[in-house]
């Protein structure tokens, strides 16, 4: 069971409080109705699915109930950083340094 830091509650809580919500930073196109079939398919079905750092969405369902984003290594399942929905992708080098500091 993962331990996940909710960026709103500012607390690490067990995974069962959270719901994974798929890849992050895939914004719904404002003009969705005018997408081509191909574009819609890419938006709705195609995913990076990286082996390594993934950017993903979580919802603190049994907590503050808010959605947030996380950068996580899919090989080790370790979180690099979590951050509120709507924020840009963070600088992962900085996040790694922060983590290293926290670990000592």
């Amino acid at each position: 069971m993962l331990l996940i830091h909710c960026p709103y509650c500012e607390e690490a809580r067990p995974e069962i409080e959270f719901r994974h919500a798929g890849e992050a930073h895939i914004a719904r196109p404002a003009d969705i109705a005018s997408l081509t079939d191909e574009e819609f398919s890419r938006f709705f079905f195609y995913r990076d699915n990286p082996k390594g750092i993934t950017f993903e969405r979580w919802r603190h369902l049994h907590g503050c109930a808010r959605f947030f984003n996380a950068a996580r290594d899919t090989v080790t399942d370790k979180f690099l950083v979590t951050y509120p929905a709507g924020e840009a992708k963070p600088d992962l080098v900085e996040a790694a340094n922060e983590n290293a500091k926290g670990a000592t």
């Binding site: 069971m1 993962l2 995974e15 994974h20 993903e56 899919t74 399942d77």
Partner: peptide, 13 residues
């Protein structure tokens, strides 16, 4: 498990 992963491990729950 609910999240994507290549770790070949999962949670006890």
């Amino acid at each position: 498990d609910q999240y994507t992963s290549y770790s070949q491990t999962g949670g006890l729950h």
